[in-house]
């Protein structure tokens, strides 16, 4: 699978972002190849969401550049990037089936049948109104929508934080089984131990800077401990 990528899917060069005087990202350079599942890890306030928002064109860089499949974040990249934001953007009064129609309209790569199958596996009715669903179930619905696109890049900001362990397992299995070998997944999380076995690589972010990029297996080989344990050591307070 590793040999299949042709160049980087994402190329980030010298990216910086300030909010007023506060530096959120400082000179970040990064390449994401195709066919990888990558964990973006860092403590609260380390710049994970800022980086993700920049990649989705929701913020503009102070300095530097992001290219996704050769394009700056914009209309072309939104067609090939499937993004799960950290907070919901969906109106509460909408029904799940209306959401399916929205996604079908908005995204040429949305697979409605796949979404329906996943909803049914998790026993979520398409007739349900979002406001009647629990927080965790809403998160499941949103993740199902995002994973039912045939995207090049999935960017998931804290995808499993509010979901119960059984659904977490189901979602992780779905991610593993269904993403195309040409696609990559970037996911930010603080639940490292749950997600560690499905990751190829990890990126550690600290105070807006990348402090480490490594494969999971290299960390285990080198330090004789899990990424989770290593993270706790590096970021111990």
């Amino acid at each position: 699978m590793n040999e299949m990528h042709t160049g980087s899917l994402v190329s980030i060069r010298n990216l910086s972002k300030k909010y007023g005087k506060h530096t959120a990202l400082k000179d970040v350079s990064l390449d994401i190849p195709r066919g990888r599942i990558i964990g973006l890890l860092g403590p609260n306030g380390s710049g994970k969401t800022t980086l993700i928002k920049l990649m989705n064109g929701l913020l503009t860089p102070g300095k530097g550049q992001i290219l996704i499949d050769g394009n700056l974040p914009g209309v072309e990249t939104k067609a090939c990037v499937s993004y799960l934001p950290e907070r919901t953007y969906l109106p509460p009064a909408i029904r799940v089936k209306q959401l399916l129609s929205y996604f079908t309209d908005f995204y040429a790569d949305f697979d409605r049948q796949k979404a329906l199958a996943m909803l049914s596996s998790l026993q979520i009715s398409p007739d349900a109104s979002l406001k009647t669903l629990s927080k965790g179930t809403k998160e499941k619905v949103q993740l199902i929508m995002v994973m039912s696109r045939k995207a090049q890049l999935y960017i998931l900001d804290e995808p499993i934080a509010g979901v119960d362990p059984a659904a977490r397992d189901y979602i992780l299995k779905t991610i593993i089984q269904d993403y195309s070998e040409e696609a990559s997944i970037l996911l930010s999380t603080h639940l490292i131990s749950d997600i560690e076995p499905i990751l190829d690589d990890v990126i550690f972010l600290k105070d807006g800077e990348i402090t480490l990029t490594s494969s999971v297996e290299d960390i285990r080989n080198t330090y004789g401990k899990s990424v989770d344990a290593y993270f706790r050591e590096v970021f111990s307070c």
Binding site: M1, L172, I176, Q177, P197, I198, V216
Partner: peptide
């Protein structure tokens, strides 16, 4: 590889 990776809940590249 995919099936077994999903069963084991591990990365497909690692199973490969």
């Amino acid at each position: 590889v995919r099936e077994l990776a999903a069963t084991a809940s591990v990365n497909p590249n690692t199973m490969q």
